[in-house]
């Protein structure tokens, strides 16, 4: 009973808030207040109910495109995870490399993705390549910077202690630095997965034949506002789902915290 109570206490507030917001939106749309205030036709300002209706009607079309986008997100995020952790580890072990390339790592984050995405499409075509590049680029920074900070967060006394207990560099890495960096890595991954969804949409907007971003662009052009919002809802759901999955993995792996 207690577990049920705790779960309810955890989920009830966000659920109630979402229901309240949706209710207000529904009310504002139904009464024509929103459209009136914006000076628009009613169909341009769909209510949550209408969005839900479209979501159900076009469920197979939306699911198809959502799957494409989800695969892009997972692959791009995966690439960023592997490269980010690898780069962070390399920078951690080499002072020279760290000083030399840290500005480049930071610069990678200042690249305006919207501008570079079309160029990537020109270079790599309409396939999955440019999307992966955009997502990986956007995810790389939070993962790398957080992991590097984590690796360097270790108490120097712990390292000294291990050195007097026969530990070499690789053992110090395995026994203190990597475990100490894990919580930081998870924080970075959570930020990364949330922005990965945005990256996927940018990538698809720059040029694609499938995916939720592609569908949104079409619906926007055809003024199918309700389905546009339906795609947005599904995208949010994907982001929340992935975020939650990382949180669960974090709890399973970081039992000592």
């Amino acid at each position: 009973m207690k577990a049920v109570g705790n779960t309810a206490r955890l989920w009830l507030p966000p659920l109630l808030l979402i229901i309240l917001l949706l209710g207000l939106w529904q009310l504002a749309a139904d009464t024509g207040f929103l459209a009136g205030a914006l000076g628009l036709e009613d169909f341009l300002v769909p209510s949550p109910g209408q969005i839900g209706e479209v979501l159900w009607q076009d469920r197979s079309l939306i699911a198809e495109n959502a799957e494409v986008t989800l695969v892009e997100i997972l692959a791009g995020f995966g690439i960023a995870l592997v490269v980010g952790v690898g780069v962070a580890t390399a920078l951690h072990f080499s002072e020279l490399l760290r000083r030399a390339s840290y500005p480049v790592v930071v610069a990678s984050q200042t690249i305006p993705i919207i501008v570079i995405a079309p160029i990537l499409v020109v270079w790599f075509g309409y396939g999955i390549g440019p999307k992966l590049a955009v997502i990986a680029l956007i995810c790389f920074f939070p993962i790398t910077v957080n992991t590097l900070d984590g690796l360097r967060s270790v108490d120097p006394d712990s390292v000294k202690m291990l050195r007097t207990l026969y530990a070499g560099k690789s053992q110090i890495f395995r026994r203190v630095e990597a475990p100490a960096a894990l919580p930081y890595l998870f924080s970075g991954a959570k930020i990364a997965v949330a922005v990965a969804v945005i990256g996927a949409v940018f990538g698809e907007w720059a040029g694609s034949e499938r995916g939720l971003g592609h569908l949104m662009l079409q619906d926007n052009a055809q003024l199918m506002t309700a389905r546009l919002f339906a795609s947005v809802a599904v995208l949010s759901l994907i982001a929340i789902l992935l975020f939650t999955l990382i949180g669960l993995a974090e709890r399973a792996l970081l039992r000592w915290r």
Binding site: D155, D157, S158, M161
Partner: peptide, 13 residues
């Protein structure tokens, strides 16, 4: 030499 630091430095994991 084996060194025992002032803080116990036990690894929480």
């Amino acid at each position: 030499c084996a060194w025992m630091p002032q803080k116990d430095c036990l690894l929480p994991w």
